[in-house]
Amino acid sequence: MLATLALAAAGDPTTLDVSWLDLGLAGALVLAAMGISAWQRLGLGRGFAIGAVRATVQLVVVGYVLVYVFAADRWWLVLLALAVMLAAAAQASTGRVGAPRRVVLPVTGTAMLVGAGLTLAYVDAVVLRPGQWYDPRYLIPLFGMIVGNAMNGAALAAERLTSEMESRRGEIEAYLALGATPARAAAEPTRRALTAALIPAVNALMVVGLVTLPGMMTGQILAGASPLLAVRYQIVVMFMLTGAVALTSALVVLGYRKRFFTAAEQLRPGGPA
């Protein structure tokens, strides 16, 4: 979404304009969803209505913020926007993990900061090299995608590590009792959590272009870019997301695993702390 907006803003003048009336007409499609909900008494009507309004308001606000950030052209404003995106995603990463937020958030937050930050820095400084390193037209949409994927990887890794560490308590303590390090004792849960986090990234690489047409590429094409250039951007994006997810997930399992053990290398009875 961010990508589409950002690129459309910079897009070529032949792009079709979408008026407020057009938006209202598109809203009819949400009415269809609400109709289905009413028909089957799913009770989702309110959710759709509120959701449609929220999505509109959020995106319009983001649009204006981006217009401002683009126009201001200040490096610190761009970094501030990136920080807000990171903070929002870090918050969202802790939801389904099954452990207290105060334990999970520092781990996923730090992992996302390092994993997403390094990936963005690499793409910016080494791969794309825009004339101005802080060009928001690149950094903001790229970081939006990186952070979104890093968030999913972090959440999957943490969620899976929580459940594996719990279900394998016996095995972990059997290793500890023999004098194993916590890292060795938790090797199997670590591998499983990391695999769970990385499989979506592998799958995404496999099916892109066949089953999925990524939003960024579609957005660029809609905004008038040549499909061949859009494809090249998309390849960069796919590789970038793979790296970001792998790095972030690895940092999550390494940081989070420690929380399950005491300083004396005992498995905490009440889960991570």
Partner: peptide, 10 residues
């Protein structure tokens, strides 16, 4: 702790 655990099998 690891040395202790190797000396005290369980």
């Amino acid at each position: 702790v690891r040395e202790l655990r190797r000396r005290v099998g369980f």
